[in-house]
Design a protein around this nucleic acid. Sequence first.
DNA 1: CTAGGGTTAG
Length: 583
Amino acid sequence: MLPPQSDCRDICKVLVCLTHSRLLPKGLQLHAYVIKLGFETLPLVCHHLINFYSKTNLPHSSHKLFDSFPQKSATTWSSVISAFAQNDLPHLALRFFRRMLRHGLLPDDHTLPTATKSCAALSSLPTAHSLHALALKSANHFDVFVGSSLVDMYAKCGEINNARKVFDEMPHKNVVSWSGLIYGYSQLGLDEEALNLFKCALQQDYDIRVNDFTLSSVLRVCSASTLFELGKQVHGLCFKTSFDSSCFVASSLISLYSKCGVVEGGYKVFEEVKVRNLGMWNAMLIACAQHAHTGKTFELFEEMGSVGVKPNFITFLCLLYACSHAGLVERGKHYFGLMKEHGIEPGSQHYATMVDLLGRAGKLDEAFRVIEGMPMEPTESVWGALLTGCRIHGNTEWASFVADRIFEMGAVSSGINVLLSNAYAAAGRWEEAARARKMLRDQGIKKETGLSWVEEGNRVHTFAAGDRSHGKTKEIYEKLEELGEKIAKAGYVADTSFVLKEVDGDEKSQTIRYHSERLAIAFGLITFPQERPIRVMKNLRVCGDCHTAIKFISKCTGRVIIVRDNNRFHRFEEGKCTCGDYW
DNA sequence: CTAGGGTTAG
């Protein structure tokens, strides 16, 4: 402890250290000492204490100090508002911000960014507009902090054009303003804009415009669009700038490699970074689960626990997903139960994954009982998971029952629409099938086209079912014919039992015969070097027969084929699906 | 001293 003669400056210095190293017990001790000395009413000491409690995640202690402090200055307000904002209490932060205004204090360069942060968290447009107006009126909106926070706020509220406007009007920009806008574009799926802006940032000297935040945002764009070649170049840049050791960058890199079908690249990144945060563990777990490296998923989870990293709800989603991918029902139940021991309440996504697991395993009754036991209203994806199970097991009675439940919910996303009308059609309930289609048409939801793509060097070849637009269409179809004969000779028989009846005439036979994967794979056979696996990416679920067909293709051609089905990867080798035969 | 940005899932 400090000697009694020490003045408040020394106490503040110690408080800064304790805050920085988040030493709560020592801080509490010092606080007691401060009270004993009667220093609590000194503004400087009080502000430090408020900040200390904010950084140690005790915002209500900050609040208490604030309330009992008599001469509240702008700094006092700013400290307490920030305490709420940084501890996920955006409503409270904004309430105190408004209260401050009512006390006749104007927002400044310090209070405004905290308020915008809370507004961004709530994604509230009216608040965003009034904060912008306040910035123009009272705060120095040319300030780089104020400007950046407005960019970020608009980006997070989805008003990207306003974000751009503020950005363009900023006389001095820093890496935060650049990153904020790039992140905003990437969030809205405006990949081209995001990448263009990134290129702009690189053209200027990138020391000030590019950092780990920027790089992870750009990497996210690359993985969302499976731009593997570009992603690898960005990885090079991460290495060059030493940002590859950042957990955030590493997490994005792991996700990039995984989503591009090269999980080995993800392992390498993971191994190279020794100090790992939760996000990074989760990224690696997700990669393993998606690629059905199931044993490795469980191993990593154990390792994570042994080095003292606590799992969160995402970690358990990964584990359940891994179980669902491998068909491990008992293991899935085990992890589902383990969540409570870790103090994590299962969310609707966890339920959806459990239902998916049970449904795929054919335990439709049990899956339904899980839904009945949910403490919240089942979401569309929960019912959708059950419907997928019905489809896989061709259970039309269950399918039509589930379809009714989904139908009752009203609004349905495009992902489920075909499943829904097919379920009715399969049960012979043609009126409902037509009504489902009509309802979806009225809502303006179109059936998404299933696209596959194969990256070859710097080129990306995309294919759709029955597509003839590719330059080498003739060769591809010839190869496909040849392949068809080969696999038929090897014993392949097209299996149509899994497909619920289509309403649109002969779409079914088209789906089987000329499915896009097979086009893409056929093309892959023409161009890809023998020693590398062929990777086929796909943006929609594929099912049943493709699985069988690809098995035969891998057998007849001796090629390793990795297929991405939504975010599930399947590895085919020598006529087998080596990741658990669980499509 | 008090102030702004990110990652991982679906």
